[in-house]
Design a protein around this nucleic acid. Sequence first.
DNA 1: AGGGGGATTAAGAAAAGATTAAGATGAAAA
DNA 2: TTTTCATCTTAATCTTTTCTTAATCCCCCT
Lengths: 223, 223
Amino acid sequence: MRILLVEDERKLSQLIEKILKQQNYAVDVAYDGESGLQKALIEEYDLLILDWTLPERDGLSILSTLREREKKTPVLMLTSRSGVEDMVTGLDTGADDYLAKPFAKEVLLARVRVLLRRPTEVRTSSITIADLEIDLKAKIATRAGQMLNLAPREFALLEYLATHEGEALSREDILSHVWDEFVDPFSNTVDVHIAYLRKKVDRPFSQKLILTVSGIGYKIAAP
Amino acid sequence: MRILLVEDERKLSQLIEKILKQQNYAVDVAYDGESGLQKALIEEYDLLILDWTLPERDGLSILSTLREREKKTPVLMLTSRSGVEDMVTGLDTGADDYLAKPFAKEVLLARVRVLLRRPTEVRTSSITIADLEIDLKAKIATRAGQMLNLAPREFALLEYLATHEGEALSREDILSHVWDEFVDPFSNTVDVHIAYLRKKVDRPFSQKLILTVSGIGYKIAAP
DNA sequence: AGGGGGATTAAGAAAAGATTAAGATGAAAA
DNA sequence: TTTTCATCTTAATCTTTTCTTAATCCCCCT
């Protein structure tokens, strides 16, 4: 875990650096706002610890600049001010936490741990087959960057095929996974919906992805 | 945004409930640890506010049980203790923040905003989608610089949609995050409020941002 | 030529969604 | 406390989209 500390008071910065390094964090230190901002922009940190009052450029300014530039790194603001106003401003500008000086070593470390465990990367639940992309969360399918306007059942059908890419699926399989129990098992509704899907997914493009497996059923696969 | 408050002191819980509801949050309240835990396990909350000392089961125990069960809902711990020890314990058990009683209203709200904002996206207290801007702190929405006069529930609905930009949300999802536990789950009230919101957000403009995902629900997205 | 998949299409049925109006509710003002 | 006003919910009606049925077409094989 890599942490950038921006703090101009040498005594304090050395102390914090030592505390963090004892915990095996990789720590970079900047002693003024301008160089702190530069480092934060260039390098990829897991956490920034910013003092509020700094020479050149204060912590709040660094923070808002970073957020404008879409930098999502968690930020812990450090301050000697105890005013409610400042704290609210800091948090609303995009800080994730706020710590008033002086603080106990253990409190600092607990806060750091909270902010570092955050990388709850949201797994983008999407499937890609050749130039076809299926975003399961947004319920959007695109091919060659072009949005396909699929009806609910069409999307469900595509989703089922795509989660079994390359696998030949029987009509019964498809029927039982994409339709509910009340559907007539002798109807040709799967064929019809495959046709609908092809009209949108394959017809406008040269590469066909939805393939017929004669005597069996259908499958989807990159060529 | 739906919040569960677990606090046994009636005076305080009523006060907090009022403060939060003024901000258009949907608030459920539990007055002891056991029922609080049950609610937290069953319902989908965006934030839990837990008092440390509670009858039946204390806040820390609720927290650790939830984390064992893989519930990742953000947690704000409330406490009258100011001890460093307790705070460290709370944070390390999985709390995301910690607030010592007594606290200022504005501080509580700032903390709540931090914990409610989108974990993946840039952390600021406003959301922009195309020319639509939503100020989560001031509870103001503007489009093309023009102020939209949204009713409380309309704003809450827009806020929920916007924090999940691009994602198709089911009516049940929406109902459970924008309304509290006493709403009738079979009513069409979501549809109606979507219509209200559209009248203000989309109708006067050419680009439609609030989209229907047939068979699923709704989503908000830039075109 | 006939038969067995399979593909396609149109039309009506069914489901889902949009819109409104009216009454209920609840908070602020008088 | 009563009145007023904005907001919310219910329920009915209208509109749009989606789904299924069933008829026809197609193509390959023997």
